[in-house]
Amino acid sequence: MTESSLIEVKNLKKYYEISQGLFKPKLVVKAVDDVSFSIKRGETFALVGESGCGKSTTGKTLLRLTDATSGEVRFKGEDILSLPYEKMRSLRKEMQMVFQDPYASLNPKMTIRQILLEPLRVHKKYSPEERMKKIVDILEIVGLSRSHLDRHPNEFSGGQRQRIGIARAVVLNPDFIIADEPVSALDVSVQSQVINLMLELQKEFGLTYLFISHDLSVVEHMTDRVAVMYLGKIVELADTEELFANPKHPYTQALISAVPVSHPKDVKERIVLKGDVPNPANPPSGCTFHTRCPFVMDKCKSVEPSLTEIGNGHITSCHLYSKNKEENINAIIYS
């Protein structure tokens, strides 16, 4: 991998066990199954997929908010999955998280002052006087003011709370921020304000984002590279513009075509997938997407496709693009 990558994820796995009863074998849910990617310094990397595909779990394992089953996560070259607890804790000042629900992620009993001072206090950054100055500065950057310091979260609207959540993450001056659906709980007019804020902060502090979202129009707008996940696996990874202009995996194609149009006169060729996402405790054999795929072949039912590069950092796992000549022709016809 290149030197400029800030975080590298290799073969990350997170399995959950479900107890079926005392004498029955445990069911294993592969929430994240063999995921690898790397994020370059200063870029915005998106993980997209439907609920239950493992995108949030991936985010949480990167911060070790939940422990990985196996795999490797290198942050600035250091394998953080094997770090002792204390070290990991101090490393978190460089990697922070913004959560989805601004109503649930702020402690209702704390004032904004307490909420913003806490990370600085925990990580013993700056002297107490400097801390106050620092949090007032950050409040102003996110568009709130000193007068809000002694209020409680319930006095703010959803958009303002999300600003506070972002301020809390940025106040430590981290390098890397994981934003788990930061705008999906917000109204349209407020959503655009928060997206603008995140773009501004990125420019100002040189932040690297892992942006987890299911809203493809937001992803298209603000990210550099995208990984599409389905049932715990990455099925396609490419530069954002390339992915939206030229999606390869049938799932990505369906996902992009399912986004509602932005003008009633836009006519869209829509691929409507049949059925639901399969139960992750009992995933289909072969390619996990074969039960819903419009181009399914016999091979898909038995052989699991591997990630193949089809040029320019665009990788996808689909038999339509494996190196067989005949199949390549099919792929061109279908895509």
Binding site: V188, S189, Q191, S192, Q193, I195, N196, L199, S217, V218, E220, H221, M222, T240, E241, S262
Partner: peptide, 17 residues
């Protein structure tokens, strides 16, 4: 105007203050 699809990629989104 504040829909992301109606704004140029990576540009500042139009927003209602």
């Amino acid at each position: 105007d504040s829909l992301p699809t109606n704004n140029a990629r990576k540009s500042k989104l139009y927003s209602i203050k």
